[in-house]
Design a protein around this nucleic acid. Structure first.
Lengths: 142, 142
DNA sequence: GTATCTGCAAATGTTTTGCACTCCA
DNA sequence: TGGAGTGCAAAACATTTGCAGATAC
């Protein structure tokens, strides 16, 4: 999604367009991988030296709630964000922590596979998470 | 798996069989749902009033490492444990936090669906996580 | 006997909160 | 101008760690 479309969406939902929010949206769009809050903060502070982690978390929460980004629970205490909200899976390397996108062929099928007794459930998201060791980490002896 | 088999397995891997470990294994076997560390602790303390959270975490880590249980990242700071290690997915209710087991028909297929550029990756686990609202929570107005 | 395990308390790291100030609409 | 948003510092929270003493084998 274009930055101006994201901003228009937020505006239409009653959010104020602050420079910090715009900066973070831009950072996420320009970021290659799957940054965590800390990483977003480090980029944001270059633009707004006074920005705080609280604001980063605040903005990320808004963006997630509005479906503009997706949060990935990588491990016990660390979440990463993905600005690609189209259905796909993730491979998380237990060693280096990097996150890789994986296609998700069976998305539609998985969305329909809730057993009968759970038909009243409302599914809002579906996550497919592979964990293991990436090829780079496999090469390193330790 | 039978309790005595679990114990035999741990013993064969060089772990000591302490009464705390046996108690926790028993608690997990008797537990219906998907308890968190706190819940396991509350049960364990009935049997061993001196047991500490550190021990619970220690035991859970051993059990997870040895493939006896599975950890599920429910949300930012909360993990649940599942003593059913056969491939299946989970539905997590965003409202009440309960975890429901979901069959996973495409497990084998998903395990094989890594794209060519990721063929050197070693997959150790696969998680399918549905999130949304369970039927009970949908009934309650708020 | 001794290396592993436990229990305690303190530390860690991430995320959240309270509150005064700021600034977008 | 007024209320949503920010920044700060402190709090909250689950989880981890260091270490002395206990204990399985």
């Amino acid at each position: 999604m274009e930055i101006k479309d994201t901003i228009a969406l937020l505006k239409s939902r009653g959010y104020r367009i602050t420079p910090q929010r715009v900066a973070i949206i831009r950072i996420l769009r320009d970021h290659e991988g799957h940054p965590g809050a800390e990483e977003v903060f480090r980029s944001a502070i270059q633009v707004y030296p006074n920005i705080s982690m609280a604001t980063v978390y605040n903005v990320m929460e808004v963006l997630e709630k509005e479906g503009i980004i997706r949060a990935i629970a990588v491990s016990k205490n660390s979440r990463r964000y993905d600005s690609n909200v189209k259905p796909h899976g993730h491979f998380i390397c237990d060693n280096c922590g990097r996150v890789f996108d994986i296609p998700m062929k069976y998305y539609e099928a998985c969305m329909k596979e809730l057993p009968i007794e759970l038909t009243d459930f409302e599914v809002r998201s579906l996550e497919l998470i592979y964990k293991g060791t990436c090829s780079d980490c496999k090469k390193k002896p330790l």
